[in-house]
Amino acid sequence: MKKILETQNLVKYYGSQNNVVKAVDHTSLQIEAGKFTSIVGRSGSGKSTLLHMMGGLDRPDSGKVLIEGKDIFSLKDEKLAVFRRRKIGFIFQSYNLIPSLNVWENIVLPIGLDGRKVDQDFVREILARIGMEEKIHALPGTLSGGQQQRVAVARALAARPAIILADEPTGNLDSKTELEVISMLKSCVSEYGQTLVMITHDETIAQMADRIIVIEDGKVVRS
C-alpha cells in the first residue's frame, strides 16, 4: 500500500493546566493513495483538528505529518502555503465560496493564486459533471446550499491536487443533496486518481468509503 499521507504521533492539546482538552492524542495513521478514506467520530472527538493538521492548516504540539514523504511542518509558512496550494484541496462545511466572485472565478481561484493558467477544457468538464454549466456567472449568494457545495467540490478538483480533504462537506445539506454531492465527489476522485479523506459523522455516508477510521477522544479506535 502506498502511503500518500501519514501522521506520526500527532498531539494537539487545548487549554491550560486544569482544563486540558486532548483534541488529538498521539494519533498515527496512514492514508492510502487513490482511495476514499472517511474519518468518523462524534462531535468533539477531534476529527476536525486532525484533518486540519493533516492539511497543514494547524500546527501540532508535537508529531509529524508526512505528505508524499515530506514533513510538511518543516517547511516555512510561505513554502507550506505553496505546498498546500498545489497538493491539497479543501472543502469545508460552509462558506466555502468568496461572495464577491462568481462561480467560475471561485473555481479557478486556487489556480490563479498559484500563477498558473487555467486549463479551460478541464474546468468546463468538471462544471459539466457537477451540472453547473448554466451558472458560470452566478454569484454564490444566488446559489442554494447544495449548489454551493458542488462548486466547492469543483474548486477542489480543478487544481488537480493529489489529496482532497473534506470537513463534513455535506453537513448542512438535506439527504438527497448529500447523496448527490458525495456520489459526485467519489466518482470524480476515482476518475482522476486523487485521494479523498472525508470527515463525517453520518455512517450512511461513511460506508461509501473504501476505508473507515473511527476517532474517539482524540485517538484512533478502529481503522
Binding site: 447523496l179 458525495i182 456520489s183 476515482s190 450512511t204 460506508q207 461509501m208
Partner: peptide, 11 residues
C-alpha cells in the same frame, strides 16, 4: 454501479 459513476449504500 461505481464503474458507471453511480453509488450504492444502505441505511
Amino acid at each position: 454501479l461505481e464503474q458507471q459513476g453511480g453509488t450504492i449504500c444502505v441505511k
